[in-house]
């Protein structure tokens, strides 16, 4: 049974891990070769964050990063549903990255002052990485939004599709209030205003409309995922699980 502390670390770790897993798909499929390199860089940053956070989560009971990544079942993953959904359209990938990395950037900036020294250190490193991810996503969203008619339509549709899934980023339900009180965690609800404001600015610059969308049914933080998650994990975990206990 995970402690509230472990659950919190896992949530942040799983966000980064699953996002990285989706980004990895793009390497060899990006719109230009320079972008293959860029998306790999972002995926690698996120994977690095995931590994550090998984190690932190596992430290309490001796589970390794790989135990946690490959041997947990779907219901034990705590990432938001936003990051687990398929993304094979570049507009979707950039709209999602904009939402996710803006939120991550605000989060890590706050967690750099966490009372947990390890989490603070991981966050201080990640805040620089995510600043670049936001920059990259914002540059593309502006270009797609204010590019051609087709790109405007497509990226507006992508934004509409991603928007309802961002609410879960600000959900507080899964989080033990004591962790906020003792300064370990950041109350996600406090990130909403700064994140929404930054997203609104980018969409405005991109000549896009901020969707008025109802929140999606998104309960990944509680271990209730979308149907896409099972396939993602099946692919990610099958080799590791096929050979129990070996070294790779």
């Amino acid at each position: 049974m995970n402690t509230p502390r472990t659950t919190y670390f896992l949530a942040l770790a799983d966000d980064a891990l699953i996002s990285s897993q989706r980004l990895g798909w793009w390497i060899s499929r990006a719109p230009q070769i320079e972008e293959d390199v860029a998306m790999a860089n972002i995926g690698l940053d996120q994977l690095g964050q995931a590994r550090a956070l998984l190690s932190l989560a596992g430290a309490a009971d001796g589970r390794s990063e790989d135990d946690l990544a490959f041997l947990r079942d779907e219901r034990d993953f705590r990432n938001v549903c936003l990051v687990e959904r398929e993304q094979t359209d570049f507009g979707v990938a950039m709209a999602r990255l904009l939402v996710f990395s803006t939120w991550q950037h605000e989060l890590y900036a706050a967690l750099a002052h966490s009372s947990d020294a390890m989490l603070a250190a991981i966050s201080a490193k990640a805040v620089k990485e995510t600043a670049y991810h936001v920059d990259h996503a914002a540059h593309w969203v502006r270009r797609l939004g204010d590019g051609t008619d087709e790109s405007h339509t497509r990226v507006q549709a992508a934004v509409e599709a991603e928007w309802p899934w961002r609410d879960e980023l600000f959900d507080t339900d899964f989080l033990d209030p004591d962790l906020v009180a003792d300064g370990t965690a950041v109350d996600p609800a406090t990130l909403r205003d700064p994140v929404e404001q930054r997203l609104g600015t980018v969409l405005h610059e991109a000549t896009l409309t901020v969707p008025q969308a109802r929140p999606a049914y998104s309960k990944g933080r509680l271990g209730r995922h979308t149907e896409a998650m099972g396939f993602l994990l099946a692919e990610m975990q099958h080799l590791h699980r096929s050979h129990p206990g070996v070294t790779w």
Partner: peptide
């Protein structure tokens, strides 16, 4: 060298391609 539609993207591409 590299290709990019504009200077801002060129700078970012340069960062990703040439300073890994």
């Amino acid at each position: 060298s590299l290709h990019a539609a504009d200077a801002e993207m060129a700078l970012r591409n340069a960062r990703d391609v040439y300073t890994r």
